[in-house]
Design a protein around this nucleic acid. Structure first.
Lengths: 338, 338
DNA sequence: GCCTGGCACTCTGTCCGTCCGAGTGCCAGA
DNA sequence: TCTGGCACTCGGACGGACAGAGTGCCAGGC
């Protein structure tokens, strides 16, 4: 177990390194923090911290930098979440309040997060499986062609074309629309499959094929489009990453293009509270030198999706966690209002 | 006027520089291209080309690199568009054919372009103003709340919430829906304002306010969402940009985040044929060391939107132009089918 | 008149040795 | 257990020498 002072030393190292981006030595530490002991003592502590794997030396005779394990300890035990200031909170709220629709909410959230944290922001669209159905609309575009529009309580809209096996009259369509909505409106998406199971039975034989096709498209939409959409912003902040650019930045850009990777990343995070994944804790190799700070958001107590930021492991954790948490909170409010 | 051989020399310089990314000297030129003259002669030609501003020397005693003006001449006079090979064309078609909806078409197009050109791809969604209306749907979500869904012939769907000044019955809504569609279905979006002008007059006094609100939201959607949406991909290719990374890449990433800039960029390009904007020809400063290759796409002869790539001025113009043109052609086909 | 080979010149990038400073580890003493 | 002191190590900066690539110019040849 590390002594109190050694924890202080670790905290000081993390703070200084995050600030200066340069390995920090014992002398500089004692000058910038009032630890009450001499550099020599700090050196002993640092040696101990290095033995335990919390810090490391890039080269002999350079200062120390925190390891992933060091950051982990820092985040878990040494740092709190830095709350936003009142003006910041107002700015967040004002900015988000201007949104006109869901796309706009998400777009604004991304911009906001990127600006506040000066890192890459990732915002997931409200997930279908965790939303409820507001309305299902069916539009006849041609005799054997129907457009399916799905509207969620979070304002998300999905549409799909359905090619019907047989022509489908307006009357049948209206009938299907009415029956469908009476069953699923207001229900959770996860319940939809069960709720529509026996729906074709109520229709004429010649229409059953079409009804079944429409329903299977509906279920497909639920499954496939599932959690798939997200928006990314602030990639220009990657240029502040470090000195050894090309090698570091490339895999990160690649990871950001692979939405699957990002979705998995966000998915792994816990539902409640801010989750931090540091460096190698991220399963995806390209993100081994980055940390992901994420949190769920939603209206009421429900988490409908996640948002977060991706940045260098050397980041201001308390500030980033504060910003992420605050933004999530306000996005939740906005969604609840709409 | 430049002699034929000097044009050959310029072409050779561009080709070599694009290949090697290094300033090219007279000796290397004669070795790699059969110009039929000695290095000394080439040197004279190069001096002339430099005087005319087509090439430049990074330092005395280094080889020459093309200037923006040099690339311009190369693109206009010296290089054709390199057509895609048959296998490439098949690959494009297969890849795009798998798309399930418009979002998917655009997403696949972006990936494809980025992969083919190994550069940053930008694809604009089919513009509303150049599309025709397929259907306008109105859904009553609450007594005084209507959702407006706009469907275009290119498969694009836009939705908006409308808060009505007064409750609006289902019957009135159906009435409005029917009248609205009978007027605008199949018509160009640009004609819509004119076509709906006098629509409120046919309604009861108490409903007129709501009708007007719905219509103005509709018109707003046309104007605001106008050309606004686009998708970007392949940013990881920026890492292949050059050696002097951070300074070059940063403004480009920033420009890519500013969709307005990109839209303007695409907008400036001509409607027909592949447009190339080289270096300083781009009005936006951050893109001064990049070239933009763009082209319109659409079903039939109509251009409904643009797509293109952003890359270093030192790019393979013939190949890039070929890829961009081919992709645009196939996207047009896909849209025409849907 | 145009092309060519030759030559002197210039500049960059690299390699190498030196030096300085930061930082460490260890030890003896308080 | 902490502290001051000291020797040691190593990386980064500085500077000179050098090789190589590329140029411009000139005189001569077709």
């Amino acid at each position: 177990m590390l002594s109190e002072r050694r924890l202080q030393v670790l905290r000081a190292i993390v703070q200084d390194y995050v600030g200066t981006e340069e390995p920090v030595g014992s002398k500089a530490l004692t000058e910038r923090h009032s630890l009450g002991v001499s550099p020599a003592t700090v050196r002993n502590d640092m040696a101990a911290l290095e033995d335990e794997g919390y810090i490391a030396q890039p080269h002999t005779s350079a200062g120390r930098i925190p390891t992933d394990k060091g950051y982990r300890l820092f985040v878990d035990k040494l740092a709190g979440v830095k709350p936003m200031t009142a003006p910041e909170r107002r700015a967040i709220q004002n900015f988000l309040d201007g949104a006109v629709d869901l796309d706009d909410v998400v777009a604004r959230t991304v911009r906001l997060l990127a600006q506040l944290t000066r890192q890459v922001a990732v915002v997931q669209y409200p997930s279908l499986t965790r939303s409820t159905v507001r309305h299902v609309e069916l539009l006849s575009l041609a005799p054997a062609r129907v457009m399916l529009v799905l509207i969620t309580d979070t304002g998300r809209v999905e549409q799909r074309m359905v090619d019907c096996p047989a022509p489908f009259g307006e009357a049948s369509l209206a009938d299907l629309r009415a029956r469908l909505n009476s069953r699923v409106a207001g229900r959770r998406f996860t319940d939809v499959p069960r709720l529509v199971e026996d729906l074709p039975e109520g229709f004429d034989v010649e229409d059953r094929g079409t009804v079944a096709t429409v329903l299977s498209t509906l279920l497909e939409t639920l499954v496939e489009e599932n959690e798939e959409r997200l928006m990314i912003g602030g990639t220009a902040n990657l240029t502040r990453f470090g000195h050894d650019f090309p090698l570091t930045i490339r895999p990160v850009l690649e990871a950001l293009e692979e939405q699957v990777v990002l979705l998995k990343l966000l998915g792994e995070a816990g539902d409640s509270g801010v989750t931090v994944r540091i460096g190698h804790e991220n399963a995806y190799e390209g993100l081994n030198s980055t940390s992901v700070v994420s949190v769920g958001y939603g209206s009421g107590g429900e988490t409908v999706a996640k948002l977060g930021v991706v940045g260098p492991t050397r980041m201001d954790y308390p500030g980033t966690m504060g910003a992420v948490r605050a933004v999530a909170r306000y996005v939740g409010q906005i969604l609840a209002e709409s």
